[in-house]
Each structure stands twice: as structure tokens, then as C-alpha cells.
Amino acid sequence: MSEPENRAAEPQPAGDRIALHGDDPTIRRKRLVGGLIAISLLAAAVGGIVGLFTGQEGGLIAAALVGVPLLYLLLHNTRRRIWLEGSQLVVRTWGVRRIDLVAVERIDVLITEVRGARTVALMVSPARGTGVKIDLAIYAGTRGRELDILALRKLANALVNNTAANGMVFSELLVAQLRSEAKGDSAEARPLHRLAAAAPSGKLAQRYPLQAVSKFVASLE
């Protein structure tokens, strides 16, 4: 993702791969180091408190019960990468999973809010397996980061041929975002920011189905 105020082109993976998530090794490394420090401190604190009452062995067990699941989650998120190859959405964690965006049966807009920052994402749900979240933009007030122009355009092209979930509506949302950027609109005037700002406060996650997104896209015309 890139800053709305500066849309300089970002380097893309070789070939037809268009990175959508986790392609920057520097960011992944920082998240890994920061996560390891936080997990170590938390596990040590819990283990120390439990150890006061149950002894050293009990403290070590408590620290492991807290630290191991968090460590697995951290490594899973650090390894997670998403990219686009034509109409194929490729997700890599411990293995590689491919989802044909033309064939997915449900697409929603998902807006999440954490510590004042709102993330606008697409949730694509294939017939089999769990859905995959594609972050489009993250906003905090009038500032934020957005998926780069090439990635938005390729994603819109992939969705436009989806008939099972009426992907054209979501493609039109992305095209409207691209047009707004091309006109030089400020971040708060762009469709994704307007969609994020319109979501009610106080909810961790809000899912907007096809009908709601279609109504919003129609209001942009």
C-alpha cells in the first residue's frame, strides 16, 4: 500500500504477479521482531506470576501455553503473502492456495476498526475453504495508505468477469477509486475513504454485502 498523498509507483514482483499483501520484506521483518519481543514479555510476565504460586515448573508451563499459540499466529501472519496472477488470487502461508476470482460465489466489503484506524477490504469467499481478505485501504482520519494503482486496476479487471457474485459491482467500486485518484481528489473525497467514514463507529468489523455496495456505487454517479 502507499500513501494517498504520494502515488509513486511501487516495484512489483517479476512476471505477472501483482502483490496485494506482505510483499515488503522490511515490513515483515519489523513485524516479526516486534511481535517476538511482545510475546516474550507477555509469556515471561504470565509465567512469572503463575510461578509465584505453583513453582518454576508451573510457571514454565503457563509461559508456554501463552507464548506458543501467539508465536504460531505471529509466524503465520508474517509468512502470509497475497498476490494476483491474472484472475487467480494466490495466498501463501505454510502452503499455497489459489482462488479463481471469476468463480468465487460471494464477495463483500469488510470494514474493520482498530484503535481509530479503519481498514477497507474485500472479502472473497469461494465455494470451498475459508474466505480471503484483501486490504484495499487503511485510513486514520484524513490520512492513510491505499493499495497502489496497478494492483487496484488488475483486481478490478479480475472481478469484472465474475457473474456468480456480481463482481462487476465491486469492480466498479475500484474503478471509481481509480478515477478519483486520477482527478487528483483528496483522500477524504475518494470512494474508499467515503465508504470507511460512513460506517458506524463502535464496531470492530462490519460486513457490507452486494446490495449495500451496489447502492453506494450508484450514489457515486
Rank of each mutant, 00 (worst) to 15 (best):
176 A>D: 07
68 V>K: 05
211 Q>L: 15
63 A>G: 11
23 D>W: 14
150 L>M: 02
98 R>D: 01
87 S>D: 11
151 A>D: 05
80 R>Y: 06
37 I>K: 10
129 G>D: 05
106 R>N: 08
174 L>K: 01
9 A>R: 14
108 D>M: 01
23 D>A: 14
183 K>Q: 06
141 G>N: 11
134 I>L: 15
209 P>E: 01
115 R>P: 09
135 D>G: 12
194 R>Q: 12
78 T>Y: 14
1 M>H: 13
121 A>E: 09
146 E>P: 09
124 V>Q: 03
193 H>A: 14
79 R>D: 13
133 K>C: 11
62 A>N: 06
138 I>E: 12
186 S>Y: 08
63 A>D: 09
172 E>Q: 08
112 T>Q: 12
99 I>M: 05
40 S>K: 09
45 A>Y: 10
174 L>G: 01
104 V>W: 05
188 E>I: 11
155 L>F: 02
47 G>W: 00
186 S>E: 12
221 E>G: 15
168 M>T: 05
42 L>R: 11
33 V>W: 12
168 M>E: 10
79 R>M: 15
130 T>A: 07
172 E>S: 06
16 D>E: 13
146 E>R: 11
75 L>H: 00
134 I>V: 15
54 T>L: 08
101 L>F: 05
110 L>S: 09
6 N>L: 09
70 L>Q: 05
75 L>R: 06
98 R>N: 10
53 F>N: 00
59 G>D: 13
115 R>Y: 14
152 L>Y: 04
114 V>I: 08
7 R>F: 08
221 E>Q: 15
45 A>K: 12
21 H>A: 12
213 V>R: 04
85 E>V: 10
103 A>D: 13
53 F>R: 06
155 L>V: 02
127 A>M: 14
8 A>F: 07
199 A>P: 00
13 P>M: 12
61 I>C: 04
71 L>C: 13
128 R>I: 11
70 L>F: 14
109 V>S: 01
177 Q>F: 02
77 N>S: 13
60 L>A: 14
91 V>Q: 07
124 V>R: 04
195 L>I: 05
20 L>N: 03
163 T>Q: 10
163 T>K: 04
44 A>K: 06
208 Y>A: 09
29 R>G: 03
19 A>I: 01
121 A>W: 01
200 P>Y: 15
156 A>V: 01
170 F>N: 01
160 V>S: 01
182 A>N: 02
211 Q>D: 15
71 L>T: 12
103 A>F: 01
105 E>G: 10
5 E>L: 01
194 R>V: 09
176 A>E: 10
123 M>L: 12
179 R>C: 00
184 G>V: 03
3 E>P: 00
70 L>C: 13
44 A>F: 13
73 L>M: 12
82 I>F: 06
216 F>Q: 13
9 A>T: 08
25 P>H: 02
191 P>A: 08
136 L>R: 00
102 V>Q: 04
149 I>M: 07
110 L>D: 00
12 Q>R: 09
182 A>G: 00
160 V>F: 06
25 P>M: 00
26 T>A: 15
110 L>N: 04
147 L>C: 15
153 R>Y: 02
102 V>R: 03
